[in-house]
C-alpha cells in the first residue's frame, strides 16, 4: 500500500516561506511527478515527505497512519538521490543490502533479495565492485536496487537522471517506467524536465514558488492548462503567447497557441522566417509576424522552408488557449 496524503503542509526556513499551505493526495500505485523550475520547492516537498526535513505545520499521512513526526526510516519510503548517494566504501552488494542489514534481516534472506534485485537491474556481474568503478547508469541502477530491496510503500526520486548524459537519460527513463509497471508501487518523482514528467507520470503536480499550480494527468495539463504558468511550462517547444490587439480580437488578455498547432500555408498571419532548424523529422521555425510578434512554429517533416522566406500561418480556432488578465484560463 502506498497512499500518501498531505494536509495543509507548510515549510518555512527562518523567515522564508518555502511551502505555503499545501494539500495533496497521492494514491496507491500512482506515478506522481513533481515538476517545476528550479527553486520551486519540489525537492523540499519530497524531502518533507521523506522525513528528511520537519514540516512547519500540517499533517502527513502514509497509508492512513499519521507520519508527521515519524523518523525517515519509519515511513517505509525509499529514496533515490540526485547524486545516487552510494556508500563509496562498500561493494555494490553491500550497498544494496544495507537497508536489509539495518532491518536485521537474516543473511540468507538478504542474499536472496540482493540477488533478485541485481537480476532485475542487470547488476549481477557488478555485485562485487565498488561504486567508484561503475558508470553513471550503473550507479543509478545500484541506487534503485537499494530502494527496491526494501519493498517500500513508495519510492521517492529526486532528479535521478540529471547527472546522466542525454541518451542514457532516455534509457533510464524507460527503465524506471518499466519498473513501475512491474512493481506497481507508488512512485514520487521530482524533476525540472517537463519531458520526463510528460512521459513517465500518471499524475503531474506542477509547482511554482511552493504553490501547486495544477494537478492532473499529462494530457489534461497539455490540453487544459489552468493558467499561463502551466501552459508555458508543459509542452516543447514552449507555447506561443500573444498579447495586445490580436488577443483582444479573441476576447482575452493573452492568447496561447502551441507551435505544433500552427499550420503553414493559408491563414491570416503573414510573417518572415527568421530562423529555420531542420531536424529531418520536424522543422522548427522562428517567424516574425507583424502585429502579432515572434512565433515558434513546428512543422512536421521537411518542407524546404528557409531563412528570409515569407509565409502565411493559420491558427485553428479550436487550438487556441485564452487567458484572462489574472493569467487564468478562460
Amino acid at each position: 500500500m502506498g497512499n500518501i496524503t498531505l494536509s495543509a503542509v507548510t515549510k518555512t526556513f527562518g523567515d522564508v516561506n518555502v511551502i505555503p499551505p499545501l494539500d495533496l493526495e497521492i494514491n496507491d500505485g500512482e506515478f506522481v511527478v513533481f515538476v517545476g523550475p528550479s527553486g520551486c520547492g519540489k525537492s523540499t516537498l519530497l524531502r518533507l515527505i521523506a522525513g528528511l526535513e520537519d514540516i512547519s505545520s500540517g499533517k502527513i499521512t502514509i497509508d492512513g497512519r499519521d507520519a508527521t513526526d515519524a523518523a525517515p526510516a519509519e515511513r517505509r519510503l525509499a529514496m533515490v538521490f540526485q547524486s545516487y548517494a552510494l556508500y563509496p566504501h562498500m561493494s555494490v552488494r553491500k550497498n544494496i543490502a544495507f537497508p536489509l542489514k539495518m532491518a536485521k534481516l537474516p543473511q540468507a534472506e538478504q542474499d536472496r533479495k540482493v540477488e533478485n534485485a541485481a537480476r532485475i537491474l542487470n547488476l549481477t556481474n557488478y555485485l562485487d565492485r565498488r561504486p567508484g568503478q561503475l558508470s553513471g547508469g550503473q550507479r543509478q541502477r545500484v541506487a534503485i536496487g537499494r530502494a527496491i530491496v526494501r519493498e517500500p510503500a513508495a519510492f521517492l526520486f529526486d532528479e535521478p537522471l540529471s547527472n546522466l548524459d542525454a541518451s542514457l537519460r532516455v534509457t533510464m527513463r524507460q527503465e524506471i517506467s518499466e519498473l513501475h509497471q512491474s512493481l506497481k508501487t507508488t512512485m514520487i518523482y521530482v524533476t525540472h524536465d517537463q519531458v520526463e514528467a510528460m512521459t513517465m507520470a500518471d499524475k503531474i503536480v506542477v509547482l511554482n514558488a511552493g504553490n501547486i499550480e495544477q494537478v492532473g494527468s499529462p494530457l489534461e495539463l497539455y490540453h487544459r492548462p489552468r493558467n499561463l504558468f502551466v501552459a508555458g511550462f508543459i509542452g516543447s517547444p514552449k507555447m506561443n503567447f500573444i498579447t495586445g490587439a490580436e488577443a483582444a480580437k479573441h476576447g482575452c488578455t493573452t492568447l496561447g497557441i502551441r507551435p505544433e498547432h500552427i499550420e503553414v500555408g493559408g491563414g491570416d498571419w503573414e510573417g518572415v522566417i527568421g530562423l529555420a532548424e531542420h531536424l529531418g523529422s520536424d522543422t522548427f521555425l522562428k517567424v516574425e509576424v507583424a502585429g502579432v510578434g515572434n512565433l515558434t512554429v513546428r512543422v512536421p517533416g521537411e518542407r524546404g522552408l528557409h531563412h528570409g522566406q515569407t509565409i502565411r500561418l493559420h491558427a485553428p480556432a479550436d487550438k487556441l488557449y485564452r487567458f484572462g488578465p489574472d493569467g487564468l484560463a478562460l
Binding site: 538521490f81 544495507f98 532491518a103 537499494r146
Partner: peptide, 21 residues
C-alpha cells in the same frame, strides 16, 4: 556528501549505525 547520510537515514540506520557503518 550529506545525501549519503540521508540515504543511510532513509535506509533505516540509527545514529549509531550511521556513525559506525
Amino acid at each position: 556528501p550529506g545525501e549519503i547520510l540521508e540515504a543511510a537515514r532513509m535506509d533505516g540506520a540509527t545514529l549509531r549505525s550511521e556513525i559506525l557503518y
